Simulated scan of single mutants.
Amino acid sequence: MESWERSRRLWQHAFFLSWLVLTSAGPVMEVGRVLPVALVAGLAAWYAVWFVLRTPPVGEVPRPYVVGGGLLWLGLFAIDSSFLAVCLSVLVPYCMDAVRIGLVAVLSCAGGWLWHRHHESGSVTWAEIATTALIAISAATSVGYFSSVARQSDERKELIDQLQAAQEARAVAERQAGVAAERQRLARDIHDSLTQGLASVVMLLEAAQERLPDDRHLTHALRAARENLTESRRVVLALRPGELDDDGLPEALRRLSRRLSDETGIHANALITGALRPLDVHIQGELLRVAQEAVANARRHARAAQVTLTLSFMEDVVVLDVHDDGEGFDPDRAFAGHGLLIMLERMEQLGGTLLVESAPGEGTTVVASLPMATR
Rank of each mutant, 00 (worst) to 15 (best):
M1H: 07
L10W: 05
W11H: 15
W11M: 12
Q12W: 01
A14W: 10
F15R: 05
F15Y: 15
F16Y: 13
S18F: 04
W19L: 14
L22F: 10
A25K: 02
P27D: 01
E30K: 06
L35Y: 03
A38I: 08
W46N: 15
W46Y: 05
V52A: 08
T55M: 13
G59T: 01
E60V: 07
E60K: 04
E60H: 14
V61W: 03
V67T: 13
L74F: 05
L74I: 06
G75E: 08
S89Y: 00
V90F: 05
P93T: 06
Y94G: 04
C95D: 07
C95E: 14
D97Q: 04
A98K: 11
G102N: 05
V104R: 01
G111A: 11
G112N: 03
W113T: 09
L114V: 02
R117W: 02
R117H: 03
E120L: 11
S123A: 14
S123L: 04
V124F: 02
W126G: 10
E128A: 06
A136E: 00
A140C: 07
V143M: 01
G144E: 04
G144R: 08
S148N: 15
S148P: 01
A150M: 03
Q152M: 09
R156P: 04
E158P: 00
I160D: 07
I160C: 06
L163S: 12
Q164K: 13
Q167H: 11
Q167D: 10
V172A: 11
A173W: 01
A177E: 14
A180V: 09
R185W: 00
L186W: 13
R188A: 09
D189W: 12
I190M: 07
T195V: 14
Q196L: 15
L198I: 15
V202S: 14
L205Q: 08
E206A: 14
A208W: 11
P213H: 12
D214N: 11
L218H: 14
H220C: 06
A221F: 02
A224K: 01
A224S: 11
E231G: 15
R240D: 03
R240M: 12
P241V: 07
G242C: 01
E243G: 12
D247A: 15
E251N: 10
R254W: 04
R259L: 14
T264E: 06
A268S: 13
L271H: 11
V281S: 07
L287E: 02
L288K: 15
L288D: 09
A294P: 02
V295M: 04
A296F: 03
N297I: 01
A302E: 11
A304H: 02
L309A: 08
F313G: 10
M314V: 13
E315T: 14
V318F: 03
L320V: 07
D321M: 10
V322P: 00
D325E: 05
E327V: 14
E327S: 12
G328K: 13
F329K: 09
F329L: 05
F335T: 11
H338L: 15
G339I: 08
L341V: 04
I342G: 13
M343D: 13
L350C: 08
G351A: 00
T353A: 05
V356T: 03
E357G: 09
S358N: 06
G361A: 08
E362L: 12
V367I: 13
L370V: 08
P371D: 03
P371I: 07
